[in-house]
Write a protein that binds this DNA or RNA. Structure first.
Lengths: 131, 131
DNA sequence: CCGAAAGTCAACCAATCGGTTGAATGTGCA
DNA sequence: TGCACATTCAACCGATTGGTTGACTTTCGG
């Protein structure tokens, strides 16, 4: 069930789901906690999470009676790559792009460490973003 | 009619529409010519083009009885920025990124030259990469 | 002026979406 | 054991999607 661009973009085409993704950026969350800041029903959120899972943007793992949601960066990177490799970037200097990103990240290491309590490997993902 | 992320992502969530976009990369095209390589009816393509227009990804201008479709890079850039500012790029300097993209896109102007039967002008439109 | 070409419009279809409610299924805890 | 919590399931709703076909408008060309 590999995530294709169709489902990824479709999943991103909803503000609720994009907000969920940014929430999951902070930390893994239980379904109930994901649903908390939203007005809608828990069942609705559950559906959104299913769509995000189907798109490969998150994964869900049940531990006890709690189902934990966590971000899966690969799928979004696929979308990112499609856009980035898109023609209007025909004139884009991909090397310059990588250099730019690398520079951004390098200069970022300093203040990233301080508000980071969990130890993810997100930083390492940046390398192959243009491939 | 400003393109929001919802409609942009939704428009990108269809292989036909993505293919149309890449076709328009080469050149502006009439609706009939856009429809040509597809199996589906002209009316179907017309609808797809409406969706792309509504998303701001393309624009359509009628000259004579022919309606020309041309790519509008701004909308996609918005999507690109959203993704780029997301997770794996957490901590990315968004302003710098936009400046970078703007620089890259500025080189696109050369692309709009009116003659175009064959254009491989990639070579010289990357020389003012922003730093 | 007549016919063909370029597109859109309108009606229709089945499928999916985003949301609701209420019932059902697990699981943890006192 | 039994209740409360976490989450999904099932049925339903109105709106939208992606496609069809056929009729229609506008414009070009002989």
């Amino acid at each position: 069930m590999r995530p294709d661009l169709d489902t990824v973009f479709a999943a991103l085409a909803d503000p609720t789901r994009r907000r969920i993704l940014t929430m999951l950026l902070e930390d893994d969350m239980a379904v109930t906690d994901v649903a908390d800041p939203f007005e809608m029903s828990l069942a609705a959120i559950s559906k959104h999470l299913t769509i995000l899972t189907r798109a490969g943007l998150i994964s869900q793992e049940k531990r006890g009676r709690v189902k934990w949601c966590k971000l899966e960066p690969d799928a979004m990177r696929e979308a990112s790559v499609w856009i980035a490799s898109f023609g209007q970037f025909e004139g884009l200097d991909l090397d310059a792009f990588e250099v730019f990103l690398a520079g951004q990240f390098a200069s970022d290491e300093a203040h990233k460490a301080e508000d980071r309590d969990d130890d993810d490997d997100k930083a390492d993902d940046i390398d192959d973003v243009t491939h």
